[in-house]
Design a protein around this nucleic acid. Structure first.
Lengths: 248, 248
DNA sequence: CCTCACGATGAATCACAGC
DNA sequence: TGCTGTGATTCATCGTGAG
């Protein structure tokens, strides 16, 4: 299967995609979350927010983490609107979010025209406990459809996932487990095209290729565009396990 | 431990509660969800919306399932505002919701003054599949605090729950597993009071009593008020397992 | 006491006929 | 046209009872 990786701004590149050219949109936008106050959220880099202060790994910072909630919503809406235009009927869109941005994300999805159809918890078993109450050990996948779900396909997907973030060989701060992504990309018919406007280190793309789907990705950071390119090239070889870990 | 069960409208009864008299609010309001159109959601009974047409069980209907989304938000906001007033500093509020009403529920919680602090997925392993995509096998617990979380307590709660709805001896359509509720009520300090404005069949109350907390409940339906009364009376005996199943 | 086969069910969803 | 009610559908999970 083939892939295209655009290096550039997600919105700009999406506007250049032809109508009805993709059959699934699966992405993990920068959450712009992680602080209690607006200045907490916008004044710190992604590394400062999501990485424990004394972490030893040397993961690069990533851009796009300086929007407040209102502008996050309009920005995400515009992006999902373009993705909607580029999608065919029955296309499924899946957007990762944390608990704070969950309402904003479902708003944006619906404002962009998608029919919101569910919320899938992704549970990360090894997360930090919280003294005095419940810990937060899950993120959420908000998903919706352009038009109606194609229920002629013989496909039954789980309603939740339990998987740790890759540890060994992790190359991105918010890297997703490939085994989860391999299930998600199945909402795209075989041979169809999966779009990920925030490719990051490319886990969605690797999963798509492994499952026999084409992939179109966009990544702004030169560093991660290179990492993704390398992982996508090696998607069918054992190399990916050395490049980014087994996704477990 | 003692309990009080009010038979009547939740909002009316809550207004009569004294200030700062409870140390936890744990409840499962009618979701006013289900169906794609507004008339689907507001014009049908809970049974018609949530129970499989050929189910053999004869569980009673429950009231309060006829609000559209706007009025659901204002109604829940007002209710949580009264609960806030009746709570002491550091009180935790936990509200069950489904994926559709999750954004509305977190809005209402925050509008009522609580500090939204997280979303806990409750995963129900035995749920209906969905052809063509992911099934929806979870509900959500939106939780928040009056003021700040008391982090002097030596308490660490899970970030998610995996538990089936009670099957054997179930008495309510939406009955919650007691073993989950027994964990949740621990956000209330021992000997404190747990408030549940929508008592239903009383699982929250049974859990509270078993864990050494007092309980104040409100239930509108005469039928379920009776059921709850009976379960609460038998909370410490084996009777409850016959009345409503072990919650497993 | 354990294993296995069988039957029942789910805070649904969808299509369609009838009004 | 649009709302309403009825019935078919789907499979993992759980309870039951036999072996």
């Amino acid at each position: 299967m083939s892939y295209t990786l655009h290096r550039g701004d997600a919105l700009t590149v999406l506007k250049s995609l032809p109508d009805e050219s993709v059959q699934a949109v699966i992405t993990d936008p920068p959450y712009n979350s992680g602080g209690r106050t607006s200045s907490d959220r916008t004044g710190r880099t992604a590394r400062a927010k999501y990485v424990t202060s004394n972490s030893a790994h040397g993961l690069a910072n990533f851009p796009g983490e300086n929007r407040d909630q209102r502008s996050y919503r309009s920005w995400l809406t515009e992006l999902l609107t373009e993705a909607y235009r580029a999608s065919t009927e029955h296309t499924v869109a899946m957007v990762f979010t944390d608990w704070r941005q969950e309402p904003t994300t479902s708003d944006a999805l619906q404002m962009a025209g998608w029919t919101w159809s569910g919320t899938i918890p992704w549970i990360k078993p090894s997360s930090r406990p919280r003294k005095g109450g419940p810990k937060q050990d899950s993120e959420f996948i908000i998903w919706g459809v352009k038009g109606s779900l194609d229920n002629t396909r013989d496909l039954y997907l789980p309603g939740h996932y339990i998987a740790s973030q890759p540890r060994k060989g992790r190359v991105h701060i918010t890297q997703k487990p490939v085994e989860v992504m391999q299930q998600l990309v199945q909402v795209c018919p075989e041979g169809g095209t999966v779009l990920d406007p925030f490719t990051g280190s490319g886990s969605t793309g690797v999963a798509a290729l492994r499952e026999g789907r084409r992939f179109v990705g966009v990544e702004l950071s030169a560093h991660y565009a290179d990492v993704a390119e390398e992982r996508l090239r090696g998607a069918f070889t054992k190399d990916d396990f050395e490049l980014a870990g087994p996704g477990k």
